[in-house]
Computed example of a mutant assay.
Amino acid sequence: MPRDHHALFVETDPATGSGQIYQVTGNIQNGMVFEDKPSEAPEQDPTFHEKRPLGTVQGGYEKAFRDVCLGIEVPKKQFDGARRLYPQEPIRRCQEWTAEVIQALVSGGIVS
Rank of each mutant, 00 (worst) to 15 (best):
E100L: 12
K77I: 04
E40A: 11
M1C: 10
Q88V: 08
Q95Y: 04
Q95W: 09
L8P: 00
L105F: 09
L70I: 01
Q23N: 09
D45F: 11
C69H: 00
Q78M: 12
P87M: 06
G59I: 02
D13K: 06
P75Y: 01
R84I: 03
K77F: 09
F65D: 04
E40Q: 13
K37A: 11
P38W: 02
L8D: 02
A64G: 05
P87Y: 13
A15F: 09
A15V: 02
G108C: 12
A104L: 07
V24N: 01
E11M: 12
Y61V: 01
V101P: 00
G81L: 02
R83Y: 14
M32F: 14
Q58M: 11
A15L: 05
G31D: 10
Q29M: 09
R92A: 13
F34K: 00
E89W: 14
L105V: 05
Y86K: 13
R66P: 03
Q95F: 05
V68G: 00
Q23V: 00
A99K: 14
F34M: 03
K77V: 05
A15S: 06
G26P: 05
F65I: 09
V57E: 02
N30S: 08
P42T: 03
R83E: 15
V57P: 02
P38K: 02
E89L: 13
F9M: 05
A15I: 04
Q20A: 02
P75F: 00
L54R: 00
G19H: 05
G71A: 06
S112G: 03
Y86I: 11
V33C: 00
I72D: 04
Q88M: 12
V101C: 12
G19N: 06
N27Y: 10
M1H: 13
D36S: 10
S107W: 06
G71D: 05
F48L: 02
H6Q: 11
M1G: 15
R3L: 08
N27Q: 07
S39W: 07
G71V: 05
P42Q: 04
A41L: 01
P53T: 08
G19V: 04
R83Q: 15
T16Q: 09
V101T: 11
V106Q: 15
G60K: 00
A104N: 13
Q88W: 11
H49P: 00
T56L: 08
N30E: 10
R83W: 15
W97H: 00
T98W: 09
Q20T: 03
S39H: 08
Q88D: 15
G59Q: 10
T47F: 13
S18I: 01
H49Q: 10
E43V: 06
G60Q: 01
D67C: 04
K51I: 01
T47P: 00
W97A: 00
T98L: 03
V57W: 02
P75N: 03
A64R: 06
L8S: 05
H49F: 10
K51E: 04
V10N: 04
T25E: 07
Y86N: 13
I72Q: 11
L70M: 10
A64F: 00
E89G: 07
I91W: 12
I72M: 03
Q44H: 12
G26W: 06
P42N: 08
F79A: 02
